[in-house]
């Protein structure tokens, strides 16, 4: 970056709205960059996305190709992470599995906060009985043990990756709704909302134009911090056989496959577990860093 761009970004007196916004983003990036662990998390996640995108070209072997002669082989030069009970290359399956993981996490992280944002802001903005009813529903969902509710949903809808995503989304929106409601309550009576109202803005316009944008940043932080939890829950469903179905290379299901052989062929279960651990650790590191940038007062700590 040239010195002039930098100066333009860091200017105390931005000339345009765009400059101010870009400047704020750049400041945030500088804060984020100073957090070395968060950068490590970001790097791992970028790597994950690249691996997922180019999986067929990176994977040394076909993740579905069975070779019973080569079954349960320990890590070696030919199979870096060993082979599973059907002689499939574990590394290749992990690489292809990153697509499944990203799909699940991405979809849940899109659906749940949107439901939560909608429910929470409507409840907080409307108040009265609407608030009462919506929050009571939220409480009911919160009272359910999340994983068991997800299990029941998947059982009702039938196992499969799509239903697993749906179940996770349905069980993880309530905290977002509470957060969005709390934010809405604090800004509902702000002067600029009153000003917008005086200018004739209707409730829908206030909600979409003024309240949603303000709730988004705290929701993003919360989502970033929840990503790891979503990965772990998804892997848990896979482990129980209720997520992605075989032969899809889902990491949780791979651990479940390896469980039978754990005492003699440890790598079959160990490798996918490491993958899950590294990715959710990366999300946690990233989430911590993002929180410092977007929410300096600190949400979790």
């Amino acid at each position: 970056m040239t010195e002039t761009t930098r100066a333009w970004l860091l200017s105390d007196a931005p000339q345009t709205r765009r400059q101010a916004r870009m400047g704020a983003l750049y400041q945030g990036w500088l804060t984020f960059r100073a957090n070395r662990l968060a950068m490590v998390g970001l790097a791992i996640l970028i790597l994950l996305v690249l691996v997922a995108a180019f999986a067929p070209w990176i994977a040394p072997q076909n993740p579905y190709a069975q070779n019973l002669a080569e079954r349960l082989k320990p890590p070696s030069a030919q199979h870096w992470l060993g082979t599973d009970a059907l002689g499939r290359d574990i590394l290749s399956r992990l690489i292809h599995g990153s697509r499944v993981t990203l799909f699940i996490v991405g979809t849940v992280a899109l659906i749940a906060p949107v439901i939560g944002l909608f429910v929470g802001t409507v409840a907080g903005f409307a108040g009265g009985w609407v608030d009462q009813v919506l929050m009571r529903i939220t409480d009911i969902f919160l009272a359910f043990p999340k994983l068991i509710l997800a299990l029941a949903f998947v059982a009702a809808l039938g196992p499969g990756i799509g239903n697993a995503v749906l179940a996770l989304a349905v069980t993880s929106w309530p905290p977002y709704a509470r957060l969005a409601r709390a934010e809405t309550l604090t800004i509902r009576n702000a002067d600029y909302i009153a000003a917008a109202r005086l200018q004739g803005a209707g409730p829908l316009r206030l909600l979409i134009g003024h309240i949603w944008p303000l709730c988004v940043s705290s929701l993003i932080v919360r989502v970033a911090l929840d990503m790891a939890g979503i990965i772990l829950s998804a892997a848990g469903l896979g482990f129980l056989g209720l997520g992605a179905q075989p032969p899809m290379p889902e990491w949780g299901a791979m651990i479940s496959d390896g469980r039978t052989y754990i005492l003699d062929f440890w790598w079959v279960a160990a490798m996918p577990g490491m993958a899950i651990f590294i990715v959710s650790l990366a999300f946690n590191l990233l989430g911590d860093g993002l929180r410092d940038v977007l929410d300096p007062k600190g949400g979790r700590e």
């Binding site: 892997a235 848990g236 482990f239 390896g258 279960a269 577990g273 899950i276 651990f277 959710s280 946690n284």
Partner: peptide, 22 residues
């Protein structure tokens, strides 16, 4: 705490069984 938040519990259990029992 960071490791605790990031570790799949069922996997850690399996590894624990492998090490302390197996």
């Amino acid at each position: 705490a960071l490791v605790g938040y990031s570790m799949p519990i069922f996997w850690l259990g399996l590894m624990g069984l492998l090490l302390f029992y197996g």
